[in-house]
Simulated assay, not measured.
Amino acid sequence: MKKMEGRIVQGIGGFYYVKTEHGIVECRARGKFRKDNITPLVGDVVEIQMVSDKEGYILNIAPRKNQLIRPPVANVDQAIIVFAITKPELNRTLLDKMIVLSESNNIKPIICINKIDLGESDEYLKLVDLYRRIGYKAVATSAVTKVGIEELKSYLKDKTSFLAGPSGVGKSSIINSIQSNITLKTGELSEKLLRGRHTTRSVELISLDFGGFVLDTPGFTALTLDIEKEELKYYFKEFLDLQRECKFSSCLHVNEPGCSIIKAVEDKVIDKNRYISYLAILKELREKEKRRY
């Protein structure tokens, strides 16, 4: 039987479903991957050997341009970082941490502020404007009223994207709004806990009619940043030009004399909440470093 190339769109119980030009092929991985401790991931570009019209096995995995442990995906272009403006309350530090996590994995972050139909103020407009001024793509959406969905679709076109964010922010509802033939199970928000139930069972790469792929992923709140504390400042875009003016090149922008970032926060050139996020993430990296030694 012939060989062909495709992309893993779903993996369940040791079976990998590979999208090829001839349709979906159910595959198992060859024993050599287990021997070499390599696990095929959703998003992998693979070479497969056909054993029947709809079955085959994975021969080779192409080199990955990036890989995340949670969610377990490979070769993604961008992360749509989804937070609700309310219910659950928006956690700015977690949002900024997800941006750093994306960029440190060579994945472009796009910020999506959802549930704007529930907001009682225009706070979401200020947030979207802030992140756009910093240099990120940002969009405000409502899966209920469909506001912002067309703009979001323009960002998804011809890209491989995944939706990330805490449970209950409306990730599945957004995907359902993007394309009519996608019906992902959505969970009811627990009024008591104000925290969504995990409703997504496995990671799946969904083909979009207008071009590209999107993944729906579980919670994505247990984040591990694999960077050194000295690197963090380079993942805050608004710091990049200003920090060249710091008195010390090793400045971590905490309490060093002659720090241009602290002055910029005081002068309201840099958003105070972004700086608070930076300090919180830096503290976490410092604690992680202490545990390592």
Score class of each variant (00 low, 15 high):
1 M>W: 02
3 K>W: 03
6 G>D: 08
6 G>I: 01
8 I>V: 11
8 I>K: 03
9 V>R: 09
10 Q>R: 08
13 G>M: 11
13 G>D: 10
15 F>N: 06
16 Y>I: 07
19 K>T: 01
20 T>L: 10
26 E>M: 12
30 R>Y: 03
33 F>H: 10
36 D>P: 09
37 N>A: 13
37 N>C: 05
38 I>R: 01
39 T>M: 13
40 P>Y: 07
41 L>Q: 02
47 E>C: 01
48 I>Y: 00
48 I>A: 02
49 Q>I: 04
52 S>Q: 00
54 K>Y: 13
56 G>E: 02
62 A>E: 14
64 R>P: 00
64 R>V: 04
65 K>F: 15
68 L>F: 01
68 L>C: 03
72 P>A: 03
72 P>W: 00
79 A>L: 00
81 I>M: 08
85 I>S: 08
86 T>V: 04
95 L>W: 00
100 V>F: 10
104 S>Q: 10
106 N>R: 12
107 I>E: 04
117 D>F: 02
127 L>G: 06
129 D>K: 14
130 L>A: 12
131 Y>M: 09
131 Y>R: 07
136 Y>T: 11
136 Y>P: 05
141 T>L: 13
142 S>V: 06
146 K>S: 14
153 K>D: 02
154 S>Y: 10
158 D>G: 05
159 K>H: 08
160 T>F: 07
162 F>M: 09
163 L>F: 15
164 A>N: 08
165 G>W: 00
166 P>H: 08
167 S>P: 01
174 I>Y: 03
175 I>S: 03
178 I>H: 01
179 Q>S: 11
181 N>I: 13
181 N>D: 15
186 T>H: 05
186 T>A: 09
186 T>E: 11
191 E>Y: 14
192 K>S: 13
194 L>E: 15
195 R>G: 06
196 G>S: 11
197 R>N: 14
198 H>T: 05
203 V>A: 13
207 S>D: 07
208 L>W: 04
208 L>N: 06
210 F>I: 15
213 F>E: 08
213 F>K: 10
213 F>I: 06
214 V>E: 04
216 D>K: 04
220 F>E: 08
220 F>I: 13
220 F>C: 07
220 F>Y: 14
224 T>D: 15
229 K>Q: 15
232 L>M: 11
233 K>S: 15
235 Y>N: 06
237 K>T: 11
239 F>A: 01
243 Q>C: 12
249 S>T: 11
251 C>I: 02
254 V>N: 10
256 E>Q: 01
256 E>F: 08
261 I>F: 02
263 K>F: 08
264 A>D: 09
271 D>R: 00
274 R>Q: 02
274 R>Y: 02
275 Y>T: 06
276 I>Q: 05
278 Y>S: 06
279 L>K: 08
281 I>S: 00
281 I>Y: 05
288 K>Y: 06
290 K>F: 04
291 R>E: 01
